[in-house]
């Protein structure tokens, strides 16, 4: 195995951080801004992406021992990774400036938020493109599917981590962002569909990629990674959060006279359901990155 759990952690943290920042920005834009949520997103975003980037540095042993070599990182702009370094760096700068403005002046310029959200999207997509550009060697790393799948998962995990913290810090705010309720139901479905597409495309890889593609899919659905895939990703990461979100949506609908946010916030079991669901999404988000990195087999695996 060329890359391992450390890189999976990076892919997860970068996606989650990007999603958290984007949600934080969006939560602050409405007529009734959710300021705690915005603050949480603006803190989790750059911190998660920075920690993830640090993991990359730690994994690059030769660079770690000769740090000056990191200055070569943007010399080959044909390399997706060089662009990734630029994207991560610029995102971190913008996100940290935005956070500083939020903490000092209590508000942030919308145009800067907008740039940050655009960069967050690039960060999330880049984690997929990074693997996708090695797709000629690893059929599971499909350039057409992975970037979209990782963006969707970044949105899910970013929302989950911010919602988790907001449920604990300022429960009343959660219901204020209408986007969240729909996202909790739509994103798991989209993510599940994209994973099915990824597995189908990989299993049907043509020519010299056929054997490795089929073996990679088999490793996931019935091989050494089957338990992690079905239990960790499908059940805990997709089905459980989706089911809990359905239950909460029903409860909200049953008490329409109260605002949904207040309803869920003051309902102890509703809050527990939400926390469990959010934690499930985070577990699933990590499992997705871990499985995509670990279960992939190279075309030359004989």
């Amino acid at each position: 195995m060329i890359w391992d759990a450390l890189i999976a952690c990076y892919l997860f943290l970068a996606g989650m951080g990007a999603g958290a920042f984007a949600l934080g920005a969006i939560a602050g834009w409405g007529k009734d801004p959710a300021l705690t949520m915005k603050k949480v997103g603006f803190i989790v975003g750059p911190v998660a992406v920075a920690v993830g980037t640090l993991l990359l540095v730690v994994d690059a042993h030769a660079g770690l021992q000769n740090p000056l070599r990191f200055f070569y990182l943007i010399t080959n702009l044909n390399s997706v990774m060089a662009w990734g370094v630029i994207i991560l760096s610029v995102f971190l700068v913008v996100a940290v400036i935005d956070l500083a403005l939020l903490l000092v002046k209590k508000e942030t310029p919308k145009w800067l938020d907008g740039i940050g959200v655009a960069l967050a999207l690039c960060v999330a997509a880049y984690t997929g493109v990074l693997l996708g550009d090695a797709g000629a060697a690893f059929p599971l790393w499909n350039m057409a599917v992975l970037p979209v799948l990782f963006v969707v998962s970044a949105a899910s995990t970013g929302i989950a981590v911010v919602a988790l913290a907001t449920h604990l810090l300022a429960p009343a705010e959660v219901g204020r962002v209408a986007l969240l309720k729909r996202a909790g139901l739509v994103l798991p479905l989209v993510e599940g569909a994209l994973v099915i597409v990824l597995l189908a495309v990989t299993a049907g890889a043509p020519g010299s990629a056929a054997a490795a593609g089929q073996a990679s899919v088999a490793a996931l659905v019935s091989g050494p990674y089957a338990v992690a895939f079905w239990l960790g990703f499908v059940v805990v990461g997709l089905a459980l959060p989706f089911a809990l979100e359905l239950v909460r949506a029903r409860k909200g609908a049953a008490a329409p006279e109260r605002s949904v946010g207040a309803d869920v916030a003051h309902d102890g079991s509703g809050k527990t359901l939400a926390l469990v669901g959010d934690a499930g999404v985070l577990v699933g988000g990590f499992m997705l990155r871990y499985l995509v990195v670990m279960a992939a087999l190279p075309v030359a695996f004989m």
């Binding site: 060329i2 890359w3 030769a62 990182l73 990074l130 060697a137």
Partner: peptide, 17 residues
């Protein structure tokens, strides 16, 4: 080797491993 940081991207991208 004087420029290599050991990111292993080349190892991942090589179909011949």
């Amino acid at each position: 080797p004087e420029r290599c940081i050991g990111c292993k991207y080349c190892m991942a991208a090589c179909p011949y491993q």
